[in-house]
C-alpha cells in the first residue's frame, strides 16, 4: 500500500492495460506527491502515453487502487476533472472563438478575477500575445501547445498530465514552459509527464519511471 497519503496527490496501484489481448502496461504502481514531478520514459510504444491516458480517463485501464489525496478517485467525475488537467496531442478548443476568448471563457468558468487581464497575462507569459485574436485552427502546432499551456496557467489544477511537452516547442517556448512548471511545483502542484528528453526530467527534478515493452 502506498504510504503518506496526506501529501499524495495521486496514487495508483497495479495499473494494467491491454489492447485486444496485447499487454501494454502491467502492474504499474505510481505515486505523485505535492510539489513533485514524475517522468515516464522509455522507447516508443512502451505505453507512456497510455499510462497518461489511463490516469486522465481517456482510456480505461484496470487497477487495484486509484486514489487522489488519499481518497478513491472516480476518473469521470467533475471533481476529478477539476483537480487533474491533461494536455495531450488531442488538446482541442471550442469552435468559433478566438484564442483570447477561449482563455477568457476558461477564466470565467473557474471564477478567476479579472478574466481579461488574466488571459492577457497568460498569453504574454507564453509569448503568444500576437495570436490572441486568431482562431485556434489557424495556429501552428507549436502555438497550439503554447495556448494549451496558457490555459494551464489560468485553469486551477493540482495535477498536470503532459505527453511529451517539449515537442513542437522552440527554445524560447521550452524555457518558458520549464519556468512555468517549476513555479507550479514550487506552489505544491504535481506533474506527471512522458518524455524522451532526460534533460527536461533533470531540469524539473523529476522521479524517472522507465517503462519497457511488455512480453
Amino acid at each position: 500500500m502506498l504510504q503518506d497519503t496526506a501529501t499524495s496527490l495521486l496514487a495508483v496501484c497495479g495499473l494494467a492495460k491491454a489492447y485486444d489481448g496485447r499487454v501494454i502496461i502491467e502492474g504499474l504502481d505510481l505515486e505523485v506527491e505535492a510539489g513533485s514531478a514524475v517522468a515516464l520514459m522509455g522507447p516508443n510504444g512502451c505505453g507512456k502515453s497510455t499510462v497518461l491516458r489511463c490516469l486522465s480517463g481517456h482510456e480505461q485501464g484496470t487497477h487495484t487502487s486509484f486514489e487522489t489525496a488519499g481518497r478513491p478517485a472516480r476518473v469521470h467525475s467533475s471533481a476529478y476533472r477539476r483537480d487533474v488537467f491533461p494536455i495531450f496531442d488531442d488538446f482541442s478548443f471550442f469552435p468559433d472563438i478566438t484564442v483570447v476568448e477561449h482563455l477568457e471563457l476558461l477564466a470565467g468558468m473557474y471564477d478567476v478575477p479579472d478574466h481579461e487581464a488574466t488571459a492577457a497575462a497568460a498569453l504574454k507569459r507564453f509569448g503568444i500575445s500576437g495570436v490572441a485574436q486568431q482562431f485556434p485552427t489557424a495556429l501552428s502546432s507549436g502555438q497550439i501547445r503554447r495556448v494549451a499551456f496558457a490555459a494551464a496557467a489560468i485553469r486551477p489544477w493540482k495535477l498536470l498530465l503532459l505527453d511529451e511537452p517539449e515537442q513542437r516547442l522552440d527554445l524560447d517556448g521550452r524555457s518558458r514552459l520549464v519556468r512555468f512548471l517549476q513555479e507550479q511545483m514550487a506552489a505544491g502542484r504535481g506533474l506527471v509527464f512522458a518524455t524522451h528528453d532526460a534533460g527536461l526530467a533533470q531540469l524539473l527534478a523529476a522521479s524517472v519511471v522507465t517503462l519497457a515493452h511488455q512480453g
Partner: peptide, 13 residues
C-alpha cells in the same frame, strides 16, 4: 465539441 473531446471535458469544471 464538448461531447466529442475529452480535453474539452477537462476544461469545463
Amino acid at each position: 465539441a464538448w461531447n466529442a473531446s475529452p480535453s474539452l471535458r477537462f476544461l469545463v469544471p
